[in-house]
């Protein structure tokens, strides 16, 4: 193979006339990927990718675990810009008792994307009212 390619190199002009089909294929796939990626990024550019984060949190699951209760939540960023260090705070309040607060921090919530996490409580969230919300974020 090596020997053959060396002899081929002596006649570079020949290769110009016959471009291998594989080269066409590889270049065409590359071009398609370029157009696709530029398209998606460009589309984001003009579809509100620069609106600051709006984060809503919904509780997905509450389960008794060893030592208390676990609340799984899903934080969704409705806006285009990514949020960093999103602090999620959950409160359980029951009549006549002190409220219990738990916190979690999500490193990133990208635009139009969701991230999941969990909070632990010692008290049963069903015993009172449970509120989980995003308290704040930093821009990345």
């Amino acid at each position: 193979m090596n020997r053959k390619s060396r002899t081929d190199d002596i006649h570079p002009a020949k290769a110009e006339q016959q471009m291998p089909w594989l080269e066409w294929l590889a270049s065409a796939i590359g071009l398609l990927l370029v157009l696709g990626i530029f398209g998606v990024i460009g589309w984001q550019l003009f579809s509100g990718a620069t609106t600051p984060p709006v984060i809503t949190v919904e509780v997905e699951n509450v389960a008794p675990v060893e030592g208390g209760y676990r609340v799984l939540f899903r934080a969704y960023n409705n806006a285009g810009e990514a949020a960093a260090q999103v602090e999620i705070e959950g409160k359980v309040t029951a009549a006549g008792e002190d409220e219990e607060t738990s916190k979690a921090i999500l490193d990133y919530v990208p635009g139009h994307s969701a991230r999941q996490g969990g909070l632990f409580f010692t008290r049963d969230p069903h015993s009172g009212s449970l509120a989980v919300r995003a308290v704040g974020f930093a821009t990345p």
Binding site: P12, E16, S27, G30, L31, L32, V34
Partner: peptide, 17 residues
């Protein structure tokens, strides 16, 4: 080995792919 701008562009797309 390349011989023209067209080929260089094609190779660039292929490398990108």
């Amino acid at each position: 080995k390349t011989f023209s701008l067209k080929e260089d562009a094609m190779d660039a797309f292929a490398a990108f792919g």
